[in-house]
């Protein structure tokens, strides 16, 4: 269970920017997808849950515990490859090490590596892999070791079509709570039973049902009878159901829907 209450976060570092402000999100035994353009704050939400972003106000709780003080809760996993760079290991050593650290065995992950045809990566260090291979190894480590919560950041980015279909099947069937970030709208066709959120400039809109995604429209301005209003630096927009300016299902990603509405 994940509970984010009025939380603001920034990346640690000299930029000191605050990409997320006053965020509220509750996920309890369900699967949700968060859709937003690149740079909208999707990854930061996952980093907040994982304890990788500085939470400057508000609270993030995982399994009922404040994420700042949580320790040794091995039921949560992610595909963010930066968390698997411990010791600069080879892929094979990383699989064995994280299996050990998760209190599990490496067989499940090794089987998935074989299933996805990634055996050639086993002897190479993670940083030596291509971005697509890194993404797939991250996905495999996230989906292995029996997690109860899986956080997936752009899991299909740089992944070829064949592997994408196999991966979709695993994500759909895995028995775990999932937060999946993507900028691709067309992926919603596969996630009909999932919760749906949109994020733009760090502002989260939702919850919608993914099964209704092809009935949602984006409109310029505050339209009467809207489901939600979004205020951005480039104007005010509203989401309506069954009628409106541009159907969300008409485009491949959210950024192009915004361009069309202009």
């Amino acid at each position: 269970m994940i509970e984010i209450s009025n939380a603001s976060a920034r990346y640690s570092g000299e930029f000191k920017n605050i990409p997320i402000e006053g965020l509220n999100l509750s996920v309890n035994s369900e699967k949700i997808v968060i859709i937003g353009p690149n740079g909208s704050g999707k990854t930061t939400i996952l980093r907040m849950i994982l304890g990788l972003a500085d939470i400057v106000s508000g609270e993030v709780r995982v399994f009922g515990k404040d994420v700042r003080y949580i320790r040794n809760e091995s039921g949560i996993s992610t595909n963010l490859i930066e968390v698997y760079r411990l010791m600069g290991s080879s892929v094979l050593d990383a699989v064995r090490m994280y299996a050990e650290l998760k209190g599990s065995g490496p067989d499940e992950a090794l089987d998935l590596i074989s299933k996805f045809g990634l055996e050639e990566t086993l002897r190479r260090k993670i940083f030596q892999l291509s971005s697509g291979q890194q993404k797939m190894i991250g996905n495999i480590l996230a989906l292995s070791f029996s997690p109860s919560i899986v956080l997936l950041d752009e899991p299909f980015e740089n992944v070829d079509q064949g592997r994408r279909i196999k991966l979709l099947n695993i994500i759909e069937t895995i028995d775990a709570e999932i937060i999946l970030n993507t900028h691709e709208l067309d992926i919603l066709k596969r996630f009909k039973k999932w919760g749906l959120y949109f994020i733009v400039e760090g502002k989260l809109l939702g919850r919608f049902d993914a099964s209704n995604a092809d009935r949602l429209f984006l409109n310029r301005g505050d339209i009467h009878g809207n489901l939600a209003v979004l205020e951005t630096s480039f104007g005010k927009y509203s989401i309506t159901k069954d009628s409106g300016q541009v159907p969300l299902s008409s485009a491949r990603d959210l950024a192009s829907v915004f361009e069309e509405v202009q």
């Binding site: 994982l50 304890g51 990788l52 994420v67 040794n72 949560i76 968390v83 411990l86 998760k102």
Partner: peptide, 9 residues
Amino acid sequence: AYGFRYTKL
């Protein structure tokens, strides 16, 4: 930071 929170490390 992840390991101390979400693994047995």
